[in-house]
């Protein structure tokens, strides 16, 4: 036992590490997601980018156009807007890569960037 421990690394260690790395690579390929960040777009300008995985406590972002966006760990949503129909607020929380919601009267869009696995290129409806 003592003898074996003198070696810092054994081939089997590296093989195990390689297996996990290969799994990580495969996941990165299959997952292909980048669903960790969200963007807030007003007009054509991206006014804010939020790393949703780094969010620890919920907070809100008040935009200049009167729209308020809520951010919490892993999710983003409209929480208040001066628009009459409140469709944006009713769209609820966005969590998955590629999801988006818009407040049309205020020309404000929030979306989770990236594409979930097998996500379609576009949505109709």
């Amino acid at each position: 036992m003592k003898n074996k421990l003198k070696r810092f690394l054994r081939p089997a260690d590296l093989i195990a590490a390689a297996a996990v790395l290969a799994a990580a690579g495969l996941l990165a390929l299959l997952g292909g997601t980048d669903g960790a960040t969200a963007e807030i777009i007003v007009g054509r300008q991206t006014v804010e980018t939020v790393d949703l995985t780094a969010v620890r406590e919920p907070y809100t972002i008040a935009l200049d156009n009167g729209v308020t966006v809520a951010v919490e760990p892993g999710a983003i949503s409209f929480c208040a807007s001066g628009c009459p129909n409140q469709l944006c607020v009713r769209a609820g929380k966005l969590t998955k890569a590629g999801e988006s919601a818009a407040c049309l009267p205020n020309e404000t869009l929030i979306r989770v960037t990236g594409r979930a696995r097998n996500a379609p290129d576009a949505l109709t409806g």
Binding site: R10, P11, D13, L14, I15, A18, L21, A24
Partner: peptide, 24 residues
């Protein structure tokens, strides 16, 4: 020799990871 081969495997896995994240 076996350690060397294992290290080579590790390098291959690392390269694979890099390549996969790069080809989005």
């Amino acid at each position: 020799n076996r350690l060397f081969r294992a290290a080579a495997l590790l390098c291959a896995a690392l390269t694979l990871c890099g390549a996969l994240t790069g080809c989005a």
